[in-house]
Design a protein around this nucleic acid. Structure first.
Length: 393
RNA sequence: GGCGGGAUGUCCGAGUGGUUAAAGGAGACCGGCUGUAAACCGGUUGGCUAUGCCUACGCAGGUUCGAAUCCUGCUCCCGCCA
């Protein structure tokens, strides 16, 4: 065995250590043995630009490729977003304008650079090649069959359940596959949910006379609910640009059942089960907050956390709310609406439930109008972690 | 083109003339316990300066003292046949 193939062997083992699938068997190692910078593709959806920790699992993997000298090709799905994917029930999925897509792509690029090396990243928009002539679309459509597409798990399920599947949806995997043709991808990464699409792209590349990409799928990071995948729309995500306090706090909410996955995927180290769970979680929150915001911010965030949840005190810095007073009294439901964007009706319910505090003392729902003078400088608190310091105008 | 089934709140899903702002579940939120974990217990879950008023069961009309429930038209979805 030559020295070259030996190191390719090592690199392949390193890159696949925490992956789910590396297909086909041995393909990645053979690619690496070619000794040239490989083109490693990731397709992104510009509809939800904010990157969260779930994305960083794959981005970190891409970074590993970059550190080995390879090129990352980020494909912004601007064309597909413009067409609008009518998947599932959410018929109202918005078709984004060109400006929105560009703005989202910019955001994504900026946030991705927290993890990726911009010098080894190529960003392409699939509108460059998908805005094709119908003749070319026909050629693409000829590469796959309905039976092939219906093998995809979610299509199969929906078909069996008599849920609608539009022709356009069936076309999406083909379009994604064509992206691989256009950028001549050597490797494509994705979550395990992308396995079908990534593999179909191989067939499509071959139909166009190219050598098929190899495929690397990464596990899906569960959200902070510990159950469903991390996703912005499920509101269980930790965004990479969120404030340090938020990042730390959210990570402390991760259920124990998800801790070992978090360790594997984000910390790249197994969870030490002999250690108390709280300690591991704290350490994790500290490391990840520091990764996004630096060690100093992580330390402050931890102090903030302790103050709020160990000492159960109000935080050092509280956003101020200046309130306008008309006749010397303040109507609490209206105040809550202004302070925390809850409806006045919801505010009343929260008051009745004892969820609203003023300087730590629960307010009652019996007196909805309170003298304004009693509020100036006080801290209004909703639930455990929403605070506003009140100021009279 | 023909025949049949369907559309209910954030989601799933009951409800076929009257205490229905709409059962039940999920999710979410508040409170308790705690480690902002899990499990568990209690509560809330359309809006509104509010012993009341307004808006809601695909859309538009109609019948009725009274409609998510009955009638007509329309839109959309699903299946079967062609």
């Amino acid at each position: 065995m030559s020295a070259g193939s030996g190191s390719a062997e090592q690199a392949a083992a390193f890159l696949t250590r925490n992956a789910v699938d590396a297909l086909p068997e041995g393909a990645l190692r053979r690619r690496l043995e070619e000794g040239r910078p490989l083109r490693v593709k990731l397709g992104i959806d510009p509809t939800a630009p904010d990157i969260h920790l779930g994305h960083t699992v794959i981005l970190r993997k891409l970074r590993e490729f970059q550190d080995l000298g390879h090129t990352v090709v980020l494909i912004v799905g601007d064309y597909t977003a413009r067409v609008g994917d009518p998947s599932g029930r959410s018929a109202a999925r918005p078709m984004l304008s060109g400006e929105e897509i560009d703005a989202n792509a910019q955001t994504f690029r900026r946030q991705a650079s927290i993890v990726l090396d911009p010098a080894r990243t190529e960003v392409r928009h699939n509108g460059e090649w998908l805005d094709m002539k119908m003749e070319e679309l026909f050629r693409l459509a000829l590469t796959s069959t309905i039976a092939q597409l219906l093998e995809r798990d979610d299509f199969a399920r929906r078909y069996a359940a008599r849920q609608p599947i539009s022709i356009l949806e069936l076309l999406y995997p083909l379009l994604q596959g064509y992206d691989s043709v256009a950028v001549r991808a050597d490797i494509e990464l994705g979550g395990t949910d992308q396995k079908f699409n990534l593999l179909l792209a191989r067939d499509i590349q071959q139909a166009y006379g190219l050598s098929p990409q190899s495929v690397l799928t990464m596990p899906i990071l569960p959200g902070i609910d510990g159950v469903q995948r991390m996703s912005k729309s499920l509101a269980n995500y930790v965004g990479v640009t969120e404030a340090p306090d938020e990042v730390f706090g959210k990570l402390m909410r991760v259920p124990d059942s998800a801790m070992s996955t978090y360790h594997e995927l984000l910390l790249d180290a197994p969870l030490d089960r002999t250690r108390p769970a709280v300690e591991s979680k704290r350490a994790m929150a500290r490391v990840l907050t520091a990764r996004l915001h630096g060690p100093e911010a992580a330390r402050t965030a931890e102090e903030h956390f302790d103050r709020l949840h160990v000492q159960r005190a109000a935080p050092d810095e509280i956003e101020e709310l200046v309130i306008a007073v008309k006749d010397g009294t303040v109507h609490l439901p209206a105040l809550l609406r202004e302070a925390f964007a809850v409806s006045a009706s919801e505010g009343r319910r929260l008051l009745a439930a004892g969820g609203v505090r003023l300087d730590g003392e629960p307010l009652s729902a019996d007196a909805l109008d309170v003298p304004a003078a009693a509020l100036d400088g006080s801290v209004l608190q909703l639930g455990r972690r929403r605070f506003r310091r009140l100021r009279l105008s």
